[in-house]
Amino acid sequence: MSASKGDIKVMRSQLGRVRGLGAAKNGVEHWWVERLTSIALLPLTIWFVVSVIGLLGAGHVRMIHWVGQPVNTVLLLALVLMTFHHMQLGLQVVIDDYVRGPAHLATTLLNKGAAGLLALFAVVAILKMAFWAPAI
């Protein structure tokens, strides 16, 4: 049954209200984590840009040795994890805004899957270079 408060039409039934149906109740976490990852990415991105400028023209050996420095390994891993988490959250908002019907689930899974796989590729590559560094 719809109830009316002033000129605002409330179309939610009393039963739906009692059962707590409606929002998925994880919107705040999505919003909050998007902000937290963005704050983490500020110093990480600045560090990364400065580091890449220092690495311009570097060959493979210098690249491996750079990644192999423990501080660089850790910061690179942090950068990659924060980047793909933030990216996936941001793209999901765009998907929620524009994609309707069954395509919504498909694009959501594609977004989460691609972000997860890219993050794994990057993490494995960083770790492989880090453990490779002492050998060359």
Binding site: G59, H60, V61, M63, I64, V67, V80, T83, F84, M87, G90, L91, V94, L118, F121, A122, V124, A125, I126, K128, M129, W132
Partner: peptide
């Protein structure tokens, strides 16, 4: 929003760069 989406596609370059570095000198070159 547009730059967020564009930056997302840019991460492909980052991953390619990192994976190539882990693969070997020829791939990195």
């Amino acid at each position: 929003r547009v730059t967020g989406i564009a930056a997302s596609f840019g991460t492909l370059l980052l991953v390619w760069w990192l994976v190539a570095g882990a693969t070997g000198p020829a791939a990195f070159d």
